[in-house]
């Protein structure tokens, strides 16, 4: 997650101090990715080291302000123009879990899939309710519009996960049928093969 570029985008609107950046970052993204102030200052220090921001004195209350530099603006423009890299996808715990479950005959993969599906759909119900509220109040400010977009991103990615789980399950059922016939050492979840019409892998 690019806190670095998020902060540059906020500083592009004018000089700001650390705590203010944290507050604005969170209200823009609906506190979906909470930041602690420590992360903000660490990031500001790196941005300063890379000459993307400079200290810009203090405000009336004595807060230390930071301002974006020309180099920082160039970096920000390039960030907006550059697609987010998909070449090194982030580690996905669920994908790793299912991959491991495939290799572990004592694990009931369908139960793993169903437990995750319940969890994912339930999260979607929650996001959807928040979205319905956001739409009802009619998003008008930039923060409100940004929050709606972030919420919808959560809904769409949860949906992708739910669809992928459905797909995994359907594929595993088909594979279990063919492997069950070929493999004498098949795990016990292969149902008995005399009953081909109603063949179903055992439930949890």
């Amino acid at each position: 997650m690019s806190i670095r570029h998020g902060l540059l985008a906020l500083l592009d609107r004018g000089p700001r101090y650390g705590y203010q950046l944290r507050t604005e970052f969170e209200s823009r993204t609906g506190a979906t990715w909470p930041l602690n102030v420590g992360q903000v200052y660490t990031t500001l220090a790196r941005l300063e080291r890379d000459s993307l921001v400079v200290p810009a004195g203090e405000d009336d209350s004595g807060h230390a302000l930071y301002a974006i530099t020309d180099k920082g603006r160039t970096e920000l423009r390039e960030w907006f123009a550059r697609p987010v890299d998909r070449k090194s996808p982030p580690r996905d715990e669920l994908a790793i879990k299912l991959a491991m479950a495939v290799g572990s005959p004592e694990v009931d993969i369908r139960a793993v899939i169903q437990a995750q599906r319940l969890h994912t759909i339930r999260a979607m119900q929650d996001y959807t309710r928040l979205k319905a509220q956001a739409i009802e109040t009619g998003p008008t400010t930039r923060d409100e519009v940004a929050w709606l977009l972030v919420l919808e991103q959560l809904i769409f990615s949860a949906e992708a996960e739910a669809r992928w789980l459905d797909h995994c399950e359907a594929r595993l059922v088909r594979l279990a049928e063919s492997i069950g016939q070929a493999d004498d050492d098949a795990p016990k979840r292969q149902a008995d093969s005399t009953d081909s019409a109603t063949h179903r892998p055992a439930r949890r």
Binding site: T120, I121, M124, Q125, Y127, A132, I155, F156, E159, A162
Partner: peptide, 9 residues
């Protein structure tokens, strides 16, 4: 469609 089911209680 999970996204539509998500409108439900």
């Amino acid at each position: 469609e999970p996204r539509f089911a998500a409108w439900a209680d």
